[in-house]
Amino acid sequence: MSIRTRYERELQEIFDKLVLMCRHIEVAIEKSVRSLTELDPEIAKEVFDIEELIDRMERDIEQACLKILMMEQPVARDFREVSAVLKMITDLERIGDQARDIAEISMQFGEDRIFKRLVHIPMMSVIVIQMVKDGVSSYINRDVELARSLDKTDDKVDDLFNLVMGELIEFVKKNPDDAEQAVMFIMINKYLERIGDHAVNIGEWVEYAITGSHPKREQGNERYSIQ
């Protein structure tokens, strides 16, 4: 097997692990919100297990990338693809942490009923799950348009975030005795909004991997390249 073929196989293995990590994250977000809507501590515990698995996968992919950087000393697109994965997995791991945080909060409700039927939070979770999926698949399929679209999708998440915040502020004003529940929802709302931001970061690194330009650096007139 040629060195190049071995390199491509190693990169393919990283791609496969990245897709698997992404699937676990989708499940973690979905279950974290379900642990909340159903107030089911068993589902929350499943999220904890998945989050530990995500952490292990991050370390595993990180090692594989570092090995490639050391052994192959890649340049050009090869370098960008590997360094983009190193950045993306950090965002993916944080998303896992946030799913866990939501699941932890869901356990604090105990026997208390939620003050209203949740609508916007599950809606946000559906959007952010799709964003994470799109982020990873835009990398695998080298789809720069899909990567760029994440920024626009995140606007919807931000709108929902603001809507939920408005609702919660009104709720606290009218029901100051239930402020504790409102605070927990403020945190959950923020975690979901942050997941959207991480997905946007992923899209930006995908754009860098494909085009060689990182949109944030370009905006600041600061070219992104090896220093």
Binding site: Y7, V75, A76, F79, R80, G212, S213, S225, I226
Partner: peptide, 20 residues
Amino acid sequence: TEELFSRPQDQRTENYITGR
């Protein structure tokens, strides 16, 4: 050099420096 090795403009350059 930094530009050529991080984002080469020509596919033939990319193919050569990445060992294709």
